[in-house]
Each structure stands twice: as C-alpha cells, then as structure tokens.
Design a protein around this nucleic acid. Structure first.
Lengths: 207, 207
DNA sequence: GCGAAAATGGACCCGCAAGTCCAAAAGGGG
DNA sequence: CCCCTTTTGGACTTGCGGGTCCATTTTCGC
C-alpha cells in the first residue's frame, strides 16, 4: 500500500473496515482480535497489515471514522431539517429508533474509553463528531428562533450542548441498563424546554 | 481466603482495591495489568489471587463497586438535601467540581464499555448506581413539588431520568473532549427546566 | 510459646494475539 | 505475452499478561 490501490485492493480494504466494525459492534473492542476480523472478512493476516501497516491501532482508527460518519448519516435527513416542531419530533424519533435497534453497542463510547486515552487521532474523530452534531442542532434552534418559536434570547450553543449531552447520556444509560427511556426522556425534555421558552416569549400556538 | 480474614488481610485487600482503582483511573482498564497493580500496591501475585481467587474479573468487579460508591459519596451531603433552589445549585456545583477534578477518568464509563458487556455483575453495579442516583434526584424533585416550587403535574421519574441522562452525557463529553461546558449546560438546563415549570404553575418568586 | 490457618514472595507455565516474513498468485499497462 | 506492482496465503516469532504452585513467614487463638 504505497500510494496506489487497485480497485480490488480498495474493495478489500473497505471490506476489512466494515467487517471489523461489525465484529466490534457485536463483541466489543476488547474482545475483537485481528484473527476474528481476518476470519470474518475472509482475509489473511498479511492483508490486514498490507492495508494498515501501522497495525491494529490504525485499523481501529479507520473503523472509528467509519462509525462516526455512520452516526450522523443515520440521523439524516432529519438532523439537517429542524425547521418545525413536527420536524424536531421526527428527528427525535429517528434518534430513538437508531439506538433502539443497536442497543448493545455504541461505536463512539468504546472509542472514547479505549482509544481516546491513547490515540490522539481517535480523540480528534470524536471531537469532530460532537462538534458537527452540536452545530447542526444549533442551526435548528436558530431557525426556530428566526420563526419566533424559540426565545431569541436563548444561548443557542449552550442549549444545543445541553441537548447533545442529554442524548449522549441517554445512550450511555441505554448501553448500561438496556432501557431506552432515559434517551427518550432527555430528548423530550430538551425539546420541550425549547418550545416552552418560545411559548413564554411569544405565545404562538405551535403544535 | 476461606471465610476468615485477618485484620492485616483485610487491610491488604482494601489496599489492592484502592491501588487498582487509582491505576485504572490513570491509565484505563485496558492498559492496567495485574503486574501494574502488584507493583503499585506493593503486593505479590499470590496475594492478588489469594484475595481474588477468581482472578482479574473479580478484582475489577470489586473496584467497580468501590468506585460506584465513591460516585455517590462525592455528591453528599448535597445530593440528599435538594430542598431549596440554593441547595440544588450547591449540588450542581458539587457535581461539576467533582468531574472537573478528575476529567480523565470515569470509573463508570469504562465499567460499562468493558466489563458491562461480559460480566453480569458489573452490569448490576451500574444499574444499581444509576437507580440510586436517579431515585435521590427524584426525591429532591418531589420535595420541590411539595413546597410548590415545581409543577405538581410533572412526571417526577421522567424528569429525574432526563436530568441524570444530561449528567451522564456531560461526563462523556468531558471525557471525550476535555470540556466541562456540556456538563454545566446540561445541569443548568435541567434544573432551570424544573424551576420554569414551577414559575409557570404557581409563580412564587424563588431566586 | 505452639500449632494451625492465613499471608506473602516470587519463580514458573502457558496460551493468545499482535506483528513479521517470504514466497506465490493475480492484475494490468505496454 | 511480459514484466512489474499489487495482492494474497499462511507459517512463524515474540512478548506480554493472566494464572498456578510451593515454600516461607507471619498472625492469632489457646
């Protein structure tokens, strides 16, 4: 893997990343060995090191990037279209659904707890994910302010941060206990808080 | 370790747990080996297995219990006394402070992501911690309802769940990015939401 | 103080999983 | 069709870390 990459090579590389991601989702990073990945993807040890010369860490980082992209992709298009209360509600349902389906894993959480500490690269991936996520929520809030549905005095970034924190915490609780109610409660509370601020400021019936 | 445990033995056992906890807080579970613990606590391999015959997992579980207790202990007495808005504020500060100090680790988070999946015991520890935590918050909310500071119609458990999720998420973000603003924002938003509900329902000046 | 039980030291074993190596098999441009 | 590059297979090495064992010392009830 010195610059050039055959069509076949690129496919293999991608297969490795996706296979590794799946394996990790099922069994956790800790329990996932290169041999597991090798077995699942039908590749050989040399291929793993051919495409990821720096070893496991590099592979995990690639997986992390892939999963981080996925997290946001799974919220589209709703996340990019928070322009009415029904739209917010649709996004809320989308998020809940996404995590309800794959309750066991959170690609990002292990990322933080295992790679994050050691690898600066992993840190960066997570920071970027959270930054983007929060920014998109903030855009939505600002839009609601512009149409008079949210208190214009509200600190947009801080509100977005609180909502994002609620989501993250909801996911953590989901992973810990298997219960999705915290995620739902956090999302509902966050959104309701936005609506309430709007009603307080300029009571326009928005339902 | 067959039932009896000398005074000295008990001390050693405790030293091992605390040393292991510290080691894990500094370097993460993944990077902590029995030899690290042995070195740090000035013990020998045989002692580790003497006190934790089932091996590393048993030791980690003991550490988990210890850390879980610590989490709640660090919030006392404020957590048990959420009886006025200043008290809520004091608790909020206490939580923020606690996590500001040890930003790197969250004993519970690794617990979830690494032990949780494999060990049913670890799962139980976390569930219990979250349950207790939420219950105490709920008691605080109910008290505020009883003195007319929070909307009596509010679903107490759900509100407590949302607040708890915000905290957890704030901690996760802190660990990922090193920024504590999310934790602060989540706490502030959650508490403010409670206060707002009270003002809406029965506007008694509570500042 | 004496003997049993507990506590300790540390050498040793063993398996697993990351990483290395080389040689063989596509693949693909000219 | 030829040669060079990429891709692949899989055996092998190596180190690390969990776990075992036994001999020795300390503790403690009587």
């Amino acid at each position: 893997m010195s610059g050039t990459l055959t069509r076949k090579g690129a496919a293999t590389r991608q297969r490795i990343i996706e296979g590794a991601a799946a394996e990790i989702r099922e069994h956790g990073v800790l329990a996932t060995t290169l041999d597991d990945i090798r077995g699942r993807t039908g590749t050989s040890k040399s291929q793993l090191f051919h495409y990821f010369p720096e070893g496991k860490e590099q592979l995990l980082l690639a997986v992390a990037r892939h999963e981080a992209d996925q997290v946001l992709a799974d919220q589209r298009p709703q996340l990019g279209d928070l322009t009415s209360w029904p739209a917010w509600s649709a996004w809320r349902d989308r998020v809940v659904d996404r995590y309800r389906r794959q309750k066991l894993d959170c690609p990002i959480n292990y990322l933080v707890s295992e790679l994050g500490r050691s690898t600066p690269g992993a840190q960066a991936v997570v920071v970027e994910l959270l930054r983007t996520w929060q920014a998109e929520i903030a855009v939505g809030i600002r839009h609601m302010q512009s149409i008079g549905e949210v208190d214009p005095e509200m600190d947009t970034e801080r509100a977005a941060a609180a909502l994002l924190a609620g989501i993250q915490g909801g996911v953590v609780v989901l992973m810990s206990t298997g219960s999705i109610t915290h995620l739902e409660a956090a999302l509902d509370a966050g959104i309701e808080s936005l609506r309430a601020s709007g009603r307080r400021h300029a009571p326009s019936d928005a339902a």
